[in-house]
Design a protein around this nucleic acid. Sequence first.
DNA 1: CACCAGGCGATTT
DNA 2: AAATCGCATGGT
Length: 301
Amino acid sequence: MDIKNSIITIKEPPLFSFEECIWFLDRNYDDCAHIVKQNAVWKALQLGEEQYLLKIYEKDNIINIEVLVGSVNTKSKKHIEGFITEWFDLNYDLAPFYNTLKKDKQLAYMYNDFYGLRLMGIPDLFESLCWCIIGQQINLSFAYKLKRKLVERYGTKLEYEGSSFYIFPDFKTLANASTEELKDMQFSAAKASYLISTAQAFEEGKLNKNILKTLPDVESRHNLLTSFRGIGTWTANYVLMKTIRDPNSIPHGDAGLFKSLINHNIIEDKKDTKNIKLFFERYKNMESYIVIYLWRSLAVR
DNA sequence: CACCAGGCGATTT
DNA sequence: AAATCGCATGGT
């Protein structure tokens, strides 16, 4: 294959910072979903039957996607372009959000400090839900540690030039895992059971991205999600934000969100529901974006 | 040592 | 209906 053919390019949208986006992917944690180094991100993924390893970097306001592993043809090229566009939220117009942000006395600084940050998504619904279940109630460092154990045990490893890249386990594999195995890996009994029952819901066809996308509004999507064990309002809203890309999802009860709102003197404490409501009214239909920027503010470069 | 982490469901009041 | 509890473990 011609080397040139293995590089896919996408023109960057306005109000975009590749560097800010890929920095957010890790922000000093240890996410096994990708490797960020030298102004590039390496990402392994499954597209249909085939496995891919992508190296994504920026050059002259163009996103370059180098396909290191996997075959490139018209179909897979389109698939990869679609994946990156969705992951980086390239089709979203940030201008209305920035217009509102710049008028916000406490948060206007974010326009300069986090300029061009997009809502980095989790395109795969099963992966997204598992990540939420893992992260419930524990600190993020431990959550990433648990996720890595899960992925290294049940996922797919891709070796490339001495480095290992991992693809998140598919639901069939996790549906057949046992709670005992997961408990031995430091998952609580409850989390082990939620992960397996979620995987089984996918296997039985009761839950998938298409079902959610077909529902008419965010309330019905929220209600379907929370009808499953282990998926509460926080998880439902997180997934609607990161995977379904509803613009108006707020992960209510989120510890980081409270912390950020307190840091910015927007609320007194967690029980200050009145000011939380007032705050989000300023960001009508862009709630998901302001949440991402509030989370971003918790991380230190 | 206590208390909280990007919560949730079960149990008790 | 609302408040409380247990969960696994790491960090402060």
